[in-house]
Simulated assay, not measured.
Amino acid sequence: MPTPPPTGPLVTRDGICAQLRRLGVETGETLLVHASLSSLGWVNGGAVAVVQALLDALGPSGTLVVPTQTADQSDPAVWGKPPVPEEWWDRIRATMPAYDPLITPSRGVGVIPETVRTWPGALRSAHPQTSFAALGARAREITDGHATDCRLGELSPLARLERRGARVLLLGAGYDSCTAFHLAEYRIPAPRVRVGRPGPGGWETVIEVSIDSDRFDELGHDFERDRPVVRGRVGAAEVRLFPVSDAVAYAERWLPLHRPRTEEFLHPRV
């Protein structure tokens, strides 16, 4: 069968940068970006052009941050997308490579974060499941010190982004992918979960706050209704821009009312 023609619009590096600037992205600021390449249209240069455009908009004094999560660095007993046979579990635990920020690929976050992770000069945080990668002037201060028993809480890059006045850019991504909301889960009553993963000394188990993006789309809808959110388009993608601190503060109030969770141990699924 013939290859179907590409669907537009045609999107270019300079066009993305110009549209981001019109939306209010400022030189020198720090952005936490969640992005969907396919939502933009036909991008000349693909993910590389998108990252270049983001760096152009931020300038040499700005900082680009993306999630580079690795949910597969976990116990195969809790895998659900897809599950693996139970008779494999012990062998998988014994042979799974430990997380290495330099070579462990991100998983489930898209090609743009993976492009940032492998970009010359990129730095990546130390958590083996919920790392962030950063490029730019403040990359080290944001990624350093990510505690390996604090996925998305006070000792993670999210808290540093909040304190430094960073903003979230949803570039063709929905609120269900907004990691900033997770920081609020560490500030309200929340269940704990046992998390298994490979470590430098072999298989290890840590106790963590349970994180869950369930109903984040509803949370985002109400947040956008009640708080100032810049909205626009880049290419064909819907874009939203807002402060990390606003999102966290709103989620701290919204989650206990709309998604109450008791203090208990849960069994995670990934």
Rank of each mutant, 00 (worst) to 15 (best):
P5E: 05
T7I: 15
R13S: 10
R13G: 00
R13A: 07
R13N: 08
C17N: 03
L20E: 04
V25N: 01
E26C: 04
T27C: 05
L32K: 00
A35W: 01
L37D: 15
A49F: 05
A49Y: 06
D56N: 05
D56M: 00
D56T: 03
A57G: 02
P60V: 00
S61D: 04
S61W: 04
V66K: 02
T68V: 02
Q69F: 14
A77S: 12
P83T: 00
W89N: 07
R91I: 09
R93S: 11
T95P: 05
A98N: 14
Y99W: 14
R107Q: 00
V109M: 03
V109S: 06
V109Q: 03
G110M: 03
G110Q: 02
I112H: 01
L123P: 02
L123Y: 02
H127L: 11
Q129W: 10
Q129A: 15
S131K: 12
S131C: 11
L135R: 01
G136Q: 02
I142N: 05
H146F: 09
D149L: 13
C150R: 03
R151S: 12
E154N: 00
L155F: 01
R160L: 10
E162H: 08
A166V: 04
V168M: 09
L169T: 10
L170E: 10
L170D: 08
G172K: 12
A173C: 14
D176S: 13
D176H: 13
S177R: 06
S177T: 06
Y186V: 06
R187G: 02
V195N: 08
R197T: 13
R197H: 15
R197Q: 15
P198K: 13
G199H: 14
V206F: 12
E208I: 06
V209M: 10
E224D: 14
R225I: 13
V229Y: 15
G232I: 11
G232K: 05
G235I: 13
A237W: 00
F242I: 09
P243W: 15
A247C: 06
R253V: 12
P256I: 09
L257G: 04
R259K: 12
P260M: 15
P260F: 12
H267F: 07
P268E: 05
V270A: 05
